[in-house]
Design a protein around this nucleic acid. Structure first.
Lengths: 230, 230
DNA sequence: CGTCGGCACACTGTAGACAGTCGACGAACG
DNA sequence: CGTTCGTCGACTGTCTACAGTGTGCCGACG
């Protein structure tokens, strides 16, 4: 089982190392569009820009490769991944499989506290500055789903989700993963999701989860079909 | 899609680097029991033993961490993962989810050649030295399932499977994942699996896959329940 | 007797330098 | 002119050395 830190009023003191910082910096540059798809990522260049040596950069690139944001080819270096329409099928089919499993485990394993936390994440949309920005809602969306996976108490499942999370974020802010009327619909959609989990009934949760992910999938597909490859 | 190498009579010249070799060496030591669960893995030690520097060892340990064979804690080093009964639930529930998705994609995307290749893997059991050794059958088992995932043509799914594969191998050779009568039953069980894929009917394939994985799961559970923690 | 504070050791994290590989260009050759 | 083969620059893979962190011990102090 995951040996969590001892319970207490203090969160665990995050032990961050340089490769974490570097990974964050590059990830942020990618999702914010500062690094375009296909662009080469040269270790030396990044290291100089960030004021670190190549070691941490290498580690960061490897990690981003696992997140699907970067493509690593041996002896040939790294480049920013480009997400084409083909990838959408992969990402959302896998996501459906993972969220189904997560829902099952949440129904069995989540504590009441964790379910309440999920609700509190949804509440946060009220304190966001208006008019609602897509990127802010996207962050909240990801935070919610991430918390669902954590509440499943399934370490391997969470790892698999980590390999998808950043790519989904890309669709959320770049593609049309969010409903056009996300500013009014997002809260309700996710409250329904949470309500299904609260019933702790496997079959009901599965149904809602599938519909939820399927909806996102269809919206992304529609957007990608229109838009030419970046 | 995966840009495969040009077809020809020569296999692709595998571009292996030191970290690959190191990872293989450590992985082999773990699955063969030469490194016990919980044992500490010290970079310097491993590097000296293998005649390389710490760099490749670090990379290898990171990769093995993703495969679930090794636990990496920052500033604290790596140690061989210990698989307890709790983990069985995680591994097999996730495996079921992944194999379901794989089956769906195989039905849609696999070429006839790839399905034939699967059959040929099963045939290989005939040329294994008798009496059949568990480890040899385990290798074949993994090779078969790995080929199934490849035939799905779903890169992200394959990545997720990679994170589980080695752990499943551990159960195959250490635990009781294989049927007691594996020497006579293995072939038939897997031919049935393959036959279901060949029908290319989603529902049928799903049913067989679920039964297949579920069977393995139950056997492992039964073994683990008896055996005390290692 | 228990707790705190300061060592010292062992190990990981990081830096910087060298070696090896890749891909592109251009000269030699048919 | 098209093809082949050397050569070269740019980059990754690897190594060595140093800095920083965590852990266990031991002695001092309440």
């Amino acid at each position: 089982m995951t040996q969590d830190v001892a319970p207490g009023r203090l969160g665990p003191a995050r032990r961050r190392v340089l490769s974490d910082e570097v990974a964050d910096a590059i990830r942020h540059a990618i999702v914010s569009g500062k690094l375009a798809g296909g662009e080469r990522l040269i270790e030396d260049e990044l290291a100089t820009q960030l004021g670190v040596s190549r070691g941490p950069v290498r580690e960061a690139l490897a990690r981003l490769g696992l997140e699907g944001l970067v493509v690593n080819e041996r002896h040939r270096g790294a480049s920013v991944a480009r997400l084409s329409a083909d990838e959408v099928d992969e990402i959302y089919s896998l996501r459906t499989a993972l969220e189904r499993l997560a829902a099952e485990w949440v129904c069995r394993n989540a504590t009441a506290d964790e379910l309440d936390d999920l609700g509190r994440i949804l509440d946060q949309i009220d304190v966001l500055p208006k008019p609602l920005e897509k990127v802010a809602v996207a962050n909240l969306d990801l935070e919610f789903h991430d918390a669902v996976f954590r509440a499943a108490h399934h370490e391997r499942l969470y790892r698999a989700w980590e390999g998808l999370r950043s790519q989904i974020f890309l669709f959320l802010i770049q593609g049309g993963a969010l409903r056009e009327d996300f500013d009014v619909s997002w809260r309700g959609d996710h409250e329904a999701f949470l309500a299904a989990l609260r019933t702790r009934k496997r079959s009901q949760a599965l149904k809602v989860v599938e519909a939820h992910v399927e909806g996102t999938y269809k919206r992304v597909l529609a957007t990608k079909d229109n838009a030419a490859e970046a």
